[in-house]
Simulated scan of single mutants.
Amino acid sequence: MQTEYAPTTVEQVETRVLDVEDDLAELSWVRRWARSALSDLSEADLTDTIMVLDELVSNALRHGTPPRQVRLLRRAGWLRIEVDDSCRDPACPRPPSETGGRGLALVEQCTIAWGQEQRPTGKTVWAEIVPTVQPSG
């Protein structure tokens, strides 16, 4: 697992990057990493953000293929979560069942927008949040 941090000025987008191993146990590490990176958010914003991040990463681990990467992009009043994987199949909401199907609906409820971008080597699934507390610095 590799993590990167790109310090920026207030006008720029602050970016944090984490490579994710091919193991569902990585989810707890991703949550800890994000909690640390986003420690200035209100508890409500942090809870929603971690829930969205957890859904996107768990989908990439369950349905995608390695390599996988998570990015947190921030500027004043805006936060974007991006999760890359190497599977070219689109992320598609599915009807809820005993085995799942609620994740992307949850993402939609907790964000201002979400979507995906197809790349030649896979896809990026992203979600945007407007935190009530602005990032410090």
Rank of each mutant, 00 (worst) to 15 (best):
R35Y: 09
S36A: 11
S36H: 11
A37D: 09
A37N: 10
S39N: 09
D40L: 07
D40S: 13
L41I: 02
S42H: 03
E43W: 12
E43K: 14
E43D: 13
A44E: 14
D45M: 07
D45N: 07
L46E: 04
D48L: 08
D48G: 08
T49K: 04
M51F: 14
M51Q: 14
V52N: 05
V52C: 08
D54E: 12
E55C: 10
E55K: 02
L56M: 12
L56H: 01
V57I: 08
V57Q: 02
S58P: 03
A60S: 14
A60R: 05
L61P: 09
L61F: 07
L61I: 02
L61R: 11
R62M: 10
H63T: 02
G64T: 06
T65D: 11
T65G: 05
P67I: 01
Q69E: 14
R71W: 12
R71P: 00
L72G: 07
L72Q: 03
L73F: 03
L73Y: 03
R74S: 15
R74D: 13
R75N: 10
R75P: 06
A76D: 14
A76V: 14
A76S: 14
L79Q: 05
I81Q: 01
V83G: 06
D85A: 05
C87G: 15
C87A: 15
C87Y: 08
D89F: 04
P90H: 09
C92L: 13
R94N: 06
R94K: 12
R94W: 07
R94M: 10
P95D: 15
P96F: 04
P96V: 11
E98T: 11
E98V: 13
G100A: 08
G101F: 10
G101K: 00
G101A: 06
G103N: 07
V107C: 01
E108V: 03
E108M: 07
E108F: 07
C110V: 06
I112S: 13
I112L: 12
A113G: 03
A113D: 15
G115E: 06
E117H: 10
E117R: 11
Q118R: 13
R119W: 09
